[in-house]
């Protein structure tokens, strides 16, 4: 499973982007990310979740690509959303990925 993560906007307008191959992460991180993806029903979310009112909130774009044993062919889904509009499980996933992305950036 691969994850392409992008956070943009916010007061600073700093864009953070990172790609993760799940198998290459620490086992605990990989497991946490995998379970949050499942809990958020990521593949059933609409491609765009409108942010609603508010300024300087973060914008996220998340793409998850997978080909598990039960997938006949590769599956890929992208969701774009504002921080306030993301569902609760997604908030946790975004927070986890932000931490991982920050780690990757400062390396």
């Amino acid at each position: 499973m691969q994850i392409d993560f992008e956070r943009s906007g916010g007061f600073m307008g700093l864009r953070i982007a990172a790609s993760f191959v799940l198998d290459e992460l620490d086992e605990a991180d990989a497991e946490e990310v995998r379970s949050l993806i499942n809990a958020s029903n990521f593949f059933s979310l609409p491609a765009r979740i409108e942010s609603g009112q508010g300024m300087d909130q973060f914008q996220y774009r998340l793409t998850v690509s997978r080909q598990e044993a039960f997938d006949p062919e590769p599956v890929s889904h992208t969701v774009t959303m504002g921080e306030a509009s993301a569902p609760p499980e997604m908030q946790m996933l975004l927070r986890k990925l932000t931490v991982l992305a920050r780690g990757q950036q400062s390396r």
Binding site: G10, F11, Q57, V99
Partner: peptide, 10 residues
């Protein structure tokens, strides 16, 4: 936590 931002939420 670790929230590097400020915003106006409406």
């Amino acid at each position: 936590q670790g929230y590097d931002n400020a915003f106006w939420n409406g």
